[in-house]
Amino acid sequence: MQTISMNINGVPVSGEVEDRTLLVQFLRENLRLTGTHVGCDTSQCGACVVHLDGVSVKSCTILAVQSDGCEVTTIEGLANGSHLHPMQQAFKDNHGLQCGFCTPGMVMSAIDIVNRNGCDIDEATVRKELEGNICRCTGYHNIVKSVQAGAKNMGG
């Protein structure tokens, strides 16, 4: 067991974990931040994407102990009170979600895409950049629209 501490959604937290505990387990089980989901066990689906020190990572493929001392942002940390993050708002406006299970990872990846590619992103780029996020419900059509619209929203 190791004691770890990190800053999650701006709040300092610490906890005791087995060395083999994954970051996603620490978030979901220790901290009850259950917005981050697990959809596969091969790092393919992206339901577990969070930001670690400002960039997207698959929280199912990083140990909690490896995140010791880091800044973590999860889906729970995006909205400002009842005011949705521009990307969350874009997903709502464009029907970019159905069952909601892949959505937290999609939104976290989408913000990372905008951070790297700017606010005016073409469809092909968005589709390529979403390679690590699988959705079974939407057929991606409205997710792509959401990411493009969210990018514009983020640009103000």
Partner: peptide
């Protein structure tokens, strides 16, 4: 290689 999140690690 992989996808954006994988490339970050």
């Amino acid at each position: 290689i992989g996808d954006p999140a994988v490339r970050n690690r």
